[in-house]
Computed example of a mutant assay.
Amino acid sequence: MKNISLLLLLIIPSFLISQELTLQQANHLATLPIKCLQQEYPNKLGQMLIDSTEIQSPKQLHPAFYGCFDWHSSVHGHWSLVYLLKKFPALDKREEIIRKLQINLSKENIQKELAYLSKNHEKSFERTYGWNWVLKLQLELDTFNAPFAKEMAANLKPLSDLIVERYIEFLPKLLYPIRMGMHPNTGFGLTFAWDYAVHTNNEVFKKSIRENAIRLFQNDTGCPFNWEPSGTDFLSPCLEEMAIMQRVMPEKDFLAWLHKFAPQLFNKKFDWEPAKVSDRTDGHLVHLDGLNFSRAWNLYHLIRQYPKQFSHLKALADKHFQFSLPSVVDGNYEGEHWLATFALHAFEEKENGF
């Protein structure tokens, strides 16, 4: 325990000094998904059992995405490592990371994942949170110009294709949006999906996302920022809705909509307190660190496209980002198995715009 505490004292200040992602920070953040990528237990399965033949171990059920506690955390843990490999060619343990990714994302393993998701009684499996992360992983692999990444992209593509089909089938059936600040949130579930639709120039997919997002959200006004956060949020219902509408609406229409939906964001004195975590060993309460990161990445994304209107929000985004950054390295598996991804995506949005 003394050694762990000493390590944290050495690492945490480097995160507090700079919010730019350095190689040193990347090396440390990479250790978290490396550690859990092939760690089968503890594990939380989101499985529906039809009969006893479906009772199998996590690795048997999900040979690609069995680690990092649950399926979606495993998926975005893979994204984290691909992102870091692409951004930092000199990343420590590079060969080990590539080897683990190649094992998990083999053609055979992805075919087994595809077979699982193709079951009629698993149509809602990981809808839409896990689906969203699969498409972000696919986009990251598609845009990584390395032979091993191209091979993994080809392996993953059939699963991504199925998920695109599932989105197109499901969205018209969703009569009301899901606004909670956790996995089923509709706004978040469409964001990376939209980015992937744009990347692949899939007009049918883009049309489905755009039309359904506008149908579900265009009449919303006065989002209650003061109701946030709920006790176990890791997504902001207000900002996730804003994020998808920012993507699918023309700029003039979006700004007019946002004036009605979130007028406080235009106020140069707008402030919002970061969410506080009372117990980081509690797997639900620690969600609030993720909320701070997701608030930050959505604000960075907004500022990047509309600096004239929203540059005053950068300090607020930085405050949220800075508040939870030290908790990524606190040694608790409850947060470690997923928070690195949220921190990295906040870094990604921050660096894309500033």
Rank of each mutant, 00 (worst) to 15 (best):
L135F: 01
T232Q: 12
P237H: 11
Q19V: 03
L81G: 11
L6G: 14
T200W: 00
A90N: 14
I110H: 00
A146W: 01
H183M: 06
Q38G: 04
K268S: 08
D318Y: 07
W272I: 06
I17A: 05
E273Y: 00
D233F: 11
E151Q: 14
G283Y: 01
H199N: 12
D330T: 06
F192W: 09
L171T: 13
L16G: 00
N267H: 11
V286T: 03
E20M: 05
R179H: 11
F65L: 15
H199S: 13
P326H: 05
T232D: 15
L8I: 00
Q218R: 14
Y167V: 15
L325A: 09
S311E: 05
M245D: 05
Q218K: 14
I103A: 11
G189N: 03
R210V: 05
H337Q: 13
V164P: 00
T191Q: 10
Q111A: 15
E336Y: 12
K136P: 00
F15W: 05
P184Q: 09
D220A: 10
L7D: 06
L325N: 01
H78C: 09
E241A: 09
D289E: 14
A146E: 14
S80N: 10
F310Q: 01
K268M: 05
N185S: 15
P13S: 01
E336T: 08
A146N: 06
K269M: 04
L105N: 03
I209Q: 11
H284N: 06
P147W: 12
L175Y: 12
F170K: 11
L291F: 07
S236C: 04
S236K: 04
Q102L: 06
H28P: 01
L174V: 10
Y66Q: 12
R179D: 11
